[in-house]
């Protein structure tokens, strides 16, 4: 698997969530994802970027365009240096929320993409990687 292009964007303000969505839509189109796969990816980006801002206190979005044989993909990594997720199992429970949300952010985002990977520890921040393949 090789990385053909990459970049980074800040997630510091509410406006950055909108900009992240627009940037990822463009990447998804360039990658050749079909419309439904694009929409799922951009929706997952919206959920996770909001989590990074609201729960992580802001952070970064790093993206990579991937090539693996004939298939192409996009990997997007959200990282913050916030408080981390104390109880991961609880956070990945459908409908559970620590904030005022619906509790669909993490579990929902996971269902919308092909690969989902989460690393977190109390006091060490959170890193979530999602990948969508053509």
């Amino acid at each position: 698997m090789k990385v053909t292009d990459k970049g980074t964007r800040p997630i510091r303000t509410e406006q950055d969530i909108v900009l992240a969505r627009q940037a990822c839509r463009k990447l998804a189109q360039d990658c050749g994802l079909r419309l439904v796969a694009q929409t799922k990816l951009v929706t997952a980006v919206s959920e996770l970027a909001r989590n990074t801002l609201v729960y992580g206190g802001g952070g970064d979005l790093d993206w990579e365009m991937l090539e693996d044989g004939v298939r192409r993909g996009i990997r997007i990594v959200f990282s913050d240096e916030g408080p981390g997720i104390p109880d991961l199992q609880l956070a990945m429970t459908e409908g559970w929320t620590s904030g005022g949300g619906l509790g669909l952010g993490l579990t929902g985002a996971k269902r919308l993409v092909n690969e989902f990977d989460l690393e977190t520890a109390p006091g060490k921040g959170t890193r979530i990687s999602i990948t969508q393949w053509t």
């Binding site: 799922k40 929706t43 929902g108 919308l112």
Partner: peptide, 8 residues
């Protein structure tokens, strides 16, 4: 399609 998959 995305909304239903999201659980909403």
């Amino acid at each position: 399609i995305t909304l239903v998959e999201l659980g909403l």
